[in-house]
């Protein structure tokens, strides 16, 4: 009896510990069954799944990255809010947006992120006098930068809309190209054309419906004309290097779905639009330097953070399925990638 009591006590203690451990295990098991959400690893801590030809620039979490030979490298510091890198034709530089509270500016920089030069000066002591600049696009020839700039209506302080401006890349006064529809968000996503004209997305509200149209304009202040119907709600135009193909995103805001579409572009109008099999929530298409391939951003499943996707032959009658280039990232979907 004397020897049995400690044994029994030890057995009971072990049992009690096991039971407590089991309860803790159930608690932890339930926790492990929670849905795990992708947090978006830093691109420079991952590798691309596909070896794309050339070099790609993209944005995630306010940092610009360069993708070359499947490896990412940050070209701006962490803690900033950089987005929308765009190439300067004929020069080894980029123009990108740096955003902060209340304003954003355009900056020209070397492809490694160095030698930065401020192109706009949108900060002001009074909050109401700050401005936004987004969607930089440098015209063929590399001398003029186009961008969306918020106009302030002196008679209606709530009426803040984007208009497309241009200014010499070397510095100089900006020129207002477009007249936005009031209280609609305005005009964004400029694509300067080799002809000297401008393609962009114009937002409008008619009969309670909000929509975007691709719009073509021949010069500053000229009346433009729509390239896409209001019902298609198309935006985010991307012109192929040949200038003959147009990619765009067409949206159904009510169902929150969209399609990636391509269409032939004549310089004055577009041909029939064709839906490319890009999956749900495709965004920000960009043509390859060859003009035969497309990169775009979309979640890796139906939902979630955006990844880079590659379409090898979007113009083929039966395009191949898109290939996922990145995984686990959280790329900025409103920032089209640059591919050079």
């Amino acid at each position: 009896m004397i020897r049995g009591a400690p044994r029994r006590l030890a057995a009971l203690t072990i049992l009690a510990v096991c039971m407590a451990g089991f309860g803790l295990g159930v608690w932890r098991l339930l926790g492990a069954l929670q849905t795990r959400y992708p947090t978006g690893v830093r691109p420079d801590q991952s590798h691309a799944l596909v070896d794309l030809p050339g070099t790609v620039f993209l944005a995630q979490g306010g940092v610009l990255y360069r993708l070359h030979n499947q490896s990412f490298r940050a070209i701006t510091g962490f803690g900033g809010r950089w987005t929308q890198p765009t190439p300067v034709p004929g020069a080894p530089t980029l123009v990108a947006v740096t955003q902060t509270i209340n304003f954003s500016n355009l900056v020209e920089m070397a492809a490694n992120g160095g030698a930065r030069r401020l192109l706009t000066h949108n900060a002001a002591p009074a909050q109401a006098n700050n401005h936004w600049a987004f969607y930089p696009a440098v015209a063929p020839g590399g001398r003029t930068v186009f961008y969306a700039y918020d106009l302030h209506d002196p008679n209606a302080s709530y009426n803040v809309t984007f208009a497309i401006m241009s200014q010499p890349l070397a510095g100089g006064a900006p020129t207002q190209w477009t007249t936005p529809n009031p209280y609609t968000g305005g005009d964004v996503q400029p694509v300067p054309l080799p002809s000297g004209g401008l393609l962009y997305s114009k937002f409008a509200i008619t009969n309670g419906a909000t929509y975007a149209q691709l719009w073509l304009q021949s010069g500053p202040g000229q009346a433009g004309s729509p390239l896409t119907p209001a019902t298609a709600d198309c935006q985010e135009p991307a012109l192929s290097p040949s200038g003959r193909e147009l990619a765009m995103i067409c949206v159904n805001a009510r169902t929150q779905h969209d399609t990636l579409e391509v269409a032939p572009f004549t310089g004055h109008g577009i041909g029939p639009r064709t839906i490319v099999p890009a999956g749900p929530l495709a965004a920000s298409p960009t043509w390859s330097p060859s003009g035969r391939q497309l990169l775009y951003l979309a979640p890796s499943g139906k939902l979630g953070p955006f990844q880079l996707w590659w379409l090898r032959n979007p113009l083929a009658r039966h395009p191949a399925a898109p290939a996922q280039v990145t995984t686990g990232l959280d790329l900025t979907a409103t920032s089209a990638v640059t591919w050079r």
Partner: peptide, 17 residues
Amino acid sequence: RLGGINLIAQMPVLDDF
């Protein structure tokens, strides 16, 4: 808590106030 949400913004939203 959902990790974020996918949405399609139907227009640029600019608000100074």
